[in-house]
Design a protein around this nucleic acid. Structure first.
Lengths: 168, 168
DNA sequence: CCACTAATGCAAGTCAAACTTGCGTTTATA
DNA sequence: TATAAACGCAAGTTTGACTTGCATTAGTGG
């Protein structure tokens, strides 16, 4: 499943693979974590989008599916792993900014849904989005299990309709 | 919030605090991760229980609240952190066994609810439980934010009734 | 009380990986 | 073409996981 293991993320390896000297990396970023944070923030910023499909379910499935796809890649896994382990100031700042941005985008989706009359209140957005994203992060970080193909849809349905709603 | 930082978890510190020599620890557990896994598995095993309150919501709130309380302690945070970072074989085995046990207990809760006629199908148990637990782990691991007091109830309500159900 | 064994303390050392420093060389750019 | 910034290279520092050899202590059966 995971083509990359955290233990492989040494600055030496990264430098070698980049065809560059280790010293250069430290001069440019200062710490290993700052480098990873920088690279991965850029990466994830390019990938994840928030489309307007016309329905809350459609929007959420699109976003969550995109996140799931990203988390299945080595870079995506590394980003999640980094978020959970980076301790330095730079990483902390990037992490906060990153999540602030994500939750803002999620809020927009829910507010559109409220405007359409799909949901009574967009205030659930933070918790709902956190449940969607958090479950997937938990799956790969804490449980170390792969994200199965249907997880995005199943999660969205769960969060939208609830346990009792699913069997109807 | 966090009274313990992962950087403080050196074997030297642990040994000193235990009033024991570092060598002794390595002789007994072999690796740092094996020690932590052992200690924390014991710890968490003692704490988390699955009561029978008579309703699915009651059961879930009790369990999730207990988990939330545990995750708010340094040991609980360390357990979550360890689960996400430990790489050795021993830790992997303990981790798998740990989650298998938790998901089994969750399954029981949902099956009781199905037997009572509260839900049509207990098959949602794994995903529902994962959403509940995963959201909290995500909160403290990836976002590094505290678990607010009402989170257990709010999460359970979300997972039981869904986004649209909450506003009713 | 004695002998034997297993656990512990202690000192020294290995090893890996992050990070630093000094210096010479390349590269870019005005 | 001159000059400053960026890079390569070699050497070294530091820290923390983990090992080893040896002496000492503690527990246990006779």
């Amino acid at each position: 499943m995971l083509e990359i293991s955290p233990g492989d993320l040494t600055v030496g390896h990264i430098a070698a693979r980049a065809g560059v000297n280790e010293t250069t990396i430290f001069r440019k970023w200062g710490t290993k974590e700052a480098l990873l944070a920088d690279v991965l923030m850029t990466l994830s910023g390019e990938r994840l989008v928030a489309p307007d499909t016309g329905s809350l379910r459609g929007d959420l499935v699109a976003v969550i599916e995109a996140v799931a796809e990203f988390l299945r890649t080595p870079a995506g896994y590394a980003l999640a792993y980094l978020g959970a382990t980076a301790e330095d100031e730079t990483s902390r700042g990037l992490r906060d900014a990153f999540w602030a941005d994500r939750f803002e985008r999620a809020q927009v989706i829910f507010e559109r849904a409220q405007a359409r009359g799909e949901i009574p209140d967009a205030d659930v957005a933070p918790l709902a989005y956190e449940a969607l994203i958090g479950t997937m992060h938990f799956r790969i970080l804490a449980r170390r299990r792969p994200l199965d193909p249907g997880i995005a849809e199943r999660l969205v349905d769960l969060v939208l309709d609830g346990v009792s709603g699913l069997g109807r």
